[in-house]
Nucleic acid binder design. Structure first.
Length: 332
DNA sequence: AATAGACATAT
DNA sequence: ATATGTC
């Protein structure tokens, strides 16, 4: 979903220290490549950001889930001195700065960034002079570096949605297209566009012997004019770039989903992450296993049974006895 | 102990 | 065929 952002609440009383934790998180992800420390710092930042008062001491913070001795100590240091020595020294390191810049290119992760920096490539300008060191995805990421950092206003996504529907309906009127993500949750702007597509003829059975008429490749061909670059296309997932008039280029993902799995996928890709976790936990309490593909009853043996037939998002809520939430009520 | 899986690329 | 990297 999104990068390093907190559930954007109006007033975060602990914003300063949260920023410190997020910087530490970024460092652990990009430089030391310790995902678990990265997640730990992020979790702590999220917990602090949801408080309605400014935290006064490490001891007080330790009561919160996700904050232990180490972060408590850092909080005390930050409250006393207004900074964190560990972070100060990290930020002085030029290689760290370079790695953090390069990982902002789509397709360049921590490993590739470190590799580039080791060979003396440290800036976006350097990348432009060394395209031969990049694979296809990374070249696209570089080409649209500035555009991809811009958010996409809601009205623009609405326009793209209409266009995608118009173009795929030319193949078959029976296609169903849903743009998910934060757009579906009603947000004013999004980071990218995530379109889910299904069709009555695209089912688990027919998908096996491949329905030549309704492939993702065919769909993408029909999006000519809108889609201007392809990062990757497989049988189920397209990753690429689209553009409207003279506006910035936008990241577009399209997934082709078998009909039986469509609503579970729509639910999952609409999020938010937090909402999904809540809903999956609730499903478990009711004896169901919910994931991106299906809702299945869990028997006494603990083994999930056959997927429950689902023909709408509402069905999923109803089966697990969870009050229906409109997409715009799922922001967490 | 910590999210999972599609796709690209290298070997 | 498998491992690695990224999303």
């Amino acid at each position: 979903m999104s990068k390093l952002s907190l559930p954007s609440n109006e007033k975060n009383c602990n914003a300063d220290f949260c920023k410190v934790l997020l910087d530490l998180a970024e460092y652990e992800k990009n430089v030391t490549r310790n995902v678990h420390k990265y997640n730990a710092y992020k979790k702590a930042a999220v917990v602090l950001s949801t408080l309605d008062h400014k935290i006064q001491s490490g001891d007080e913070a330790k009561k919160l889930k996700g904050i232990g001795d180490k972060i408590a100590k850092k909080l005390d240091e930050f409250n006393e001195t207004g900074k964190l020595k560990k972070l100060e020294s990290i930020n002085l390191n030029e290689n760290v700065k370079s790695i953090n810049i390069l990982t902002r290119v789509s397709g360049i992760g921590p490993v590739k960034a470190a590799d580039l920096v080791r060979s003396g490539i440290k800036t976006i300008e350097d990348l432009k002079n060394n395209e031969d060191k990049l694979n296809h995805h990374q070249r696209i990421g570089l080409k649209y570096f500035a555009d991809f950092e811009k958010t996409i206003p809601r009205n623009e996504i609405q326009e793209i949605e209409v266009l995608i529907k118009t173009l795929v309906y030319k193949i078959s009127k029976k296609f169903s297209v849903t743009i998910c993500g934060s757009y579906r949750r009603g947000k004013a702007a999004s980071g990218d566009i995530d379109a889910l597509i299904t069709h009555p003829k695209i089912t688990l059975k027919q998908n096996r012997n491949k329905n030549e008429k309704y492939t993702l490749e065919k769909i993408v061909e029909n999006l000519e004019g809108l889609v201007i670059d392809t990062i990757s296309v497989g049988e189920t997932k397209f990753m690429g770039v689209c553009i409207l008039r003279g506006l910035p280029a936008r990241r577009l993902d399209i997934r082709l989903i078998p009909l039986e799995q469509f609503y579970c996928a729509v639910l999952y890709f609409t999020g938010s992450d937090v909402f999904n976790k809540q809903m999956r936990a609730h499903a478990l309490e009711k004896g169901f296993m919910l994931n991106e593909y299906s809702l299945r009853h869990i028997g006494v043996t603990g083994v999930p049974g056959e997927p429950v037939p689902i023909s709408s998002e509402e069905d999923i809520f109803a089966y697990i006895d969870f009050p229906y939430k409109q997409p715009n009520e799922r922001n967490y």
